[in-house]
Amino acid sequence: MAILVNNLDALSIIPTIALILTTIGIYQFFAYLQNKTQLIWLNPMLLSITAIIPLLLSFELPFKQYFQSTQLLNNLLEPAVVALGFPLYQHLNSIKHQWKVLGLLLVLAVILVIVISFALTMLFISIPEIAVSLALKSITTPIGIALTQQLNGDTSITAIAIILAGLFGALLGPSWLSFINVKSAKAQGLAIGAASHALGTATISKISYEHGAYGSLSLIICAVITALISPFLINNLTILFL
């Protein structure tokens, strides 16, 4: 038995490589598919997750083991967040003239969405971890997951909630905003960047250059604001609701 266990340890590098390559392969396939079809709802992250779950179930591989094996991918989260400093740097100049207005508006927006999402989740589901996850769902995935880990939320719920928030805004955002008479490209870009992060922004970038510029400006500023105020805000909300 002991020999068998040792052999398994020595062999564990092979399933690790296999699982990482499978994950990357599946993701690349769906990314290619979306690129070809240009369909928003064919989201490669969401489709990869829904493809990998039945795979794990059919091979009876526990999630813990899958997650440990693919730890390398999860570790790349940190450098990915650092890389987002580049778009922030690119936008510093464009907000120079209106940073007070934009800053104030987006701080209010972030407080609004965190409080509402947290309160609704506590009222209807009353699980604090899930409330933290949903409160952080409007920002870009790497920062949302980093903050979820720090504030003891559930990263898998955050990941899925972020994709859904992105899809809602990408699919319905422009027509909803036009319907409520918000028709300027700047306002639409800002709103979709704030509510539906990179997913929404990538979609509206096709409408006009201004949509894309204001969308990416908004998504990066909202992520920074959320990072700065959510630890304080969520700790207080947790005390309030417990």
Partner: peptide, 9 residues
């Protein structure tokens, strides 16, 4: 692709 493992959770 880095967020897929977290999502599979």
């Amino acid at each position: 692709v880095c967020f897929v493992p977290a999502g599979v959770g």
